[in-house]
């Protein structure tokens, strides 16, 4: 099982074990990670699952689709090059640990 390290803006962290079939958003919601709402359950409708993937790892997860890019275009927290919707990210088998940063607010 891989792990996701959720880092909050105040530096606090939560490490969560994650199976290969569930998304980073779902892992966050199931474990009560603050600041990730995941309202739509991952249907690319809500954009309340915005995270920043650790810059060094941004290239290790598959790129966003058109819809994801459109949703990211107007998220409330600053949009950065490593901004992603965490419901679209599953952990590739090549990674043991993914580090994501939780933004200050969701849309």
């Amino acid at each position: 099982m891989a792990r996701v390290r959720f880092v909050q803006r105040d530096g606090t962290e939560k490490n969560v074990e994650i199976g290969s079939s569930i998304s980073v958003m779902m892992a966050a919601v199931r474990n009560g990670v603050r600041g990730i709402d995941g309202e739509c359950g991952g249907c690319l409708d809500c954009a309340t699952c915005h995270v920043y993937v650790d810059e060094a790892q941004a290239g290790l997860v598959p790129p966003p689709t058109e819809d994801e890019i459109e949703l990211l275009s107007n998220v409330t927290a600053p949009r950065r090059s490593n901004s992603r919707l965490s419901c679209q990210i599953k952990i590739p088998s090549s990674i043991d640990e993914l580090i994501v940063f939780v933004p200050e607010n969701q849309s």
Partner: peptide, 11 residues
């Protein structure tokens, strides 16, 4: 099918 507009409208 225009999620970009929707996000802008939301804000």
């Amino acid at each position: 099918n225009r999620p970009g507009d929707q996000m802008a409208a939301r804000r």
